[in-house]
């Protein structure tokens, strides 16, 4: 908690044009860029909103350029968009079946959003913020998936959707027990989905920042400058590669779990 205090301290110092080394948690600090209030709720435009908007701008350019003039024999941009879309479509075909194609745009949107937010957050120097390192954002996305799964489930199967939780061929007592566990696990899905992504992103960025701090502190060792900073710098380079991998893998995992949950709703196992 004192780290949080340090970070807040830093903000005040920065306002006074002073210098201060930010703590590893400072990067997750929400900075209000334009205060806004809607129906009594705080809806300020923050650095998180800004980077979400940048991510959507990047996705928009990618999509609009890639599909500007779709052709049977695709150009580079179109091939890139198709590659990602094909990836999502195959994932849905494998995990949901032929019914799954209908949800391809939604899963594609979620995948692209998480992926681009994760990747943009890794940009050094530009003060990048990672919206997906905030549980508010990941929880919002996870509840979007959860809501869609519930709607699809009840819309396709009605109250029969509850048979998803009922074990077949068991007596009532055991059945009720399993039913309870299944309902709890179903209700916990949005939280696990949200926490997985948030925790991965947060941990990665904290690690990067910690080693970044080591570069500065060890590199500024007076008697032998720079030399000791090389090792943590090398570690940071390797970590950045790892974080790139994690950024992609976590976006994939998020989309994969979303399609698995959709499979439950569409096919009831």
């Amino acid at each position: 908690m004192h780290r949080l205090g340090l970070a807040v301290n830093c903000q005040t110092i920065r306002k006074n044009k002073g210098f201060c080394m930010a703590g590893p948690m400072h990067q997750f600090e929400i900075a209000t860029l334009k205060p806004l209030e809607l129906a009594g709720y705080d809806a300020s435009f923050t650095n998180s909103s800004l980077w979400m908007a940048i991510a959507i701008g990047v996705i928009g350019v990618f999509m609009f350029v890639g599909t500007a003039r779709p052709q049977l024999v695709p150009g580079r941009w179109q091939a890139a968009v198709e590659y990602v879309y094909d990836f999502v479509r195959n994932m849905l075909d494998e995990n949901v079946g032929p019914e799954g194609r209908r949800y391809a745009p939604l899963i594609f949107a979620i995948f692209m959003f998480v992926l681009i937010c994760n990747l943009l957050g890794l940009l050094p120097w530009v003060g990048a913020f990672t919206p997906t390192s905030h549980i508010s954002v990941t929880l919002g996305l996870a509840f979007l998936v959860f809501t869609v799964v519930c709607i699809v489930g009840f819309w396709r199967h009605g109250l029969h959707f509850f048979s998803l939780f009922w074990p077949k061929d068991t007596n009532i007592a055991l059945g009720l027990f399993v039913f309870l566990i299944e309902v709890l696990s179903f209700l916990s899905r949005p939280f696990t989905l949200a926490i997985r992504l948030f925790a991965n992103m947060t941990a990665g960025h904290v690690l990067l920042k910690v080693f970044g701090t080591f570069v500065v502190t060890l590199g500024s060792f007076g008697a032998l400058p720079y030399v000791f900073g090389v090792l943590p710098l090398a570690v940071n380079v390797a970590l950045t590669a790892l974080e790139l991998l994690i950024a992609v893998v976590q976006a994939y995992v998020f989309a994969l779990l979303a399609s698995l949950y959709l499979n439950d709703a569409v096919n009831l196992h």
Binding site: A43, S49, I56, A109, G140
Partner: peptide, 18 residues
């Protein structure tokens, strides 16, 4: 603030772009 902007921007992404 994050939930509001996430909802708004994701709506733009889904309906406006995708």
């Amino acid at each position: 603030p994050q939930l509001f902007w996430l909802t708004a921007l994701f709506a733009v992404l889904y309906f406006g772009i995708i």
